[in-house]
C-alpha cells in the first residue's frame, strides 16, 4: 500500500525558517497560527489515538458491561477528537478537515503524548493508562473552559463532563483491581509500572504551549500537577498500591517523536483511506 511521504514540503519550509533551523529536532512553529494549529493537534491527537486504542477492546473485555464502558469512553474521545481536529483544520486554513488530519498524516506529524499510543496490554494496564490520562485530562479540559478561543472553550465544556466520568470509572477499577486479589493487585502494579515514565509528558510545557498560554488560549499544564498528584495519591492509597519515585521521563510525542507503537496503530487506522484516497464515506 502506498505510504505517505513522511516529510511534507510545508514541513521543510517551516524547518528552514524556524529559529532552531539545522538542529535535529522537528520544526518549531514560528508564528501564532502555527502554534495555535499545533496546540489543537495535541488536544485532538491525544483523544483520537486513545480512542483508537480503546476500540481494540471491542468484544474482548472481561464482561459485556465492561465492553460497553470501554466502547463508551472510546466514542466520547473520538467525538472530542473530531471537534478539535476540525477546529485545527479551520485554524490552519489549508482546506483540510478532521478526516484529512486523522488519515493523511504520518507518525512524525502526530502530536499526541506517548502514553496514549501504548499497547493495551491486559485490562489492568489499560485501566492504569486510562486513569493516569483521564485524571490529567479532566483538569486540563476544566481549565480550557476558560480559553480565549471560544471554540476550545465550548469543546472543553462539552468534553469535561464526559472525561469526569472516564476518570471516575477508571479510578474505580484501579481500586477494585489494586485492592482485589493477589493476582489483580500484581497486575495493577505492573500496569502502572509500564506507564509511570509517560506521566511527566502530560504536564510538560514547551515554547508552543507557553505562547498559547500567553495568548489566553491554552492552560498551563504544569499548574495542574499538584491537583493530579493529590488525586493519584488518594486513589492509589485506597487501591493499596504505592506511588513510586517516577522513573526518567519519556517525552517527544508533542514533537512527533513517538514510540514504535504509533506507526502500527496508524497502519491499521489509516489503511482504507490510504488505499482509496479519493473515496467518500
Amino acid at each position: 500500500m502506498p505510504s505517505l511521504p513522511t516529510i511534507q514540503p510545508q514541513d521543510e519550509a517551516r524547518a528552514d525558517r524556524a529559529s532552531h533551523a539545522g538542529t535535529f529536532d522537528a520544526p518549531v512553529a514560528d508564528d501564532h497560527r502555527d502554534a495555535h494549529f499545533d496546540y489543537l493537534l495535541r488536544l485532538g491527537d491525544d483523544a483520537l489515538i486513545l480512542g483508537q486504542r480503546l476500540s481494540e477492546w471491542c468484544g474482548h473485555a472481561p464482561a459485556l458491561e465492561v465492553d460497553l464502558s470501554l466502547a463508551n469512553i472510546g466514542l466520547d474521545l473520538i467525538g472530542q477528537a473530531t471537534l478539535f481536529l476540525d477546529h485545527a483544520a479551520s485554524v490552519e486554513g489549508a482546506g483540510r478537515d478532521a478526516d484529512a488530519l486523522a488519515f493523511r498524516r504520518d507518525v512524525l506529524q502526530f502530536r499526541n503524548c506517548v502514553m496514549v499510543e501504548q499497547p493495551n496490554g491486559d485490562f489492568a494496564r489499560t485501566m492504569a493508562r486510562q486513569f493516569l490520562f483521564s485524571t490529567a485530562h479532566v483538569l486540563l479540559l476544566d481549565a480550557l473552559t476558560a480559553s480565549a478561543d471560544p471554540q476550545i472553550a465550548a469543546i472543553a465544556a462539552k468534553g469535561v463532563k464526559e472525561v469526569r466520568y472516564h476518570a471516575d470509572l477508571s479510578a474505580d477499577w484501579v481500586i477494585r483491581l489494586g485492592d482485589g486479589t493477589d493476582e489483580s493487585r500484581a497486575r495493577m502494579i505492573d500496569g502502572f509500572d509500564w506507564h509511570w515514565r509517560f506521566v511527566d509528558e502530560l504536564f510538560a510545557m514547551d515554547a508552543i504551549e507557553e505562547r498559547m498560554v500567553a495568548a489566553g488560549i491554552a492552560a498551563d499544564r504544569a499548574a495542574l500537577r499538584p491537583a493530579f498528584d493529590a488525586r493519584l495519591q488518594a486513589v492509589l492509597d485506597e487501591a493499596t498500591i504505592p506511588v513510586p519515585e517516577l522513573p526518567r521521563a519519556v517525552v517527544g510525542g508533542r514533537k512527533g517523536h513517538h514510540s514504535e507503537h504509533l506507526g502500527h496503530l496508524l497502519a491499521v487506522m489509516q489503511h482504507l483511506p490510504r488505499s482509496y484516497p479519493d473515496a467518500t464515506w
Binding site: L64, E65, L68, S69, L169, D172, R176
Partner: peptide
C-alpha cells in the same frame, strides 16, 4: 445488568 456490586451495577 451483571455487576459485582451495586456501585458498579449503577455505572453499567
Amino acid at each position: 445488568v451483571h455487576a459485582p456490586d451495586g456501585e458498579l451495577a449503577v455505572r453499567h
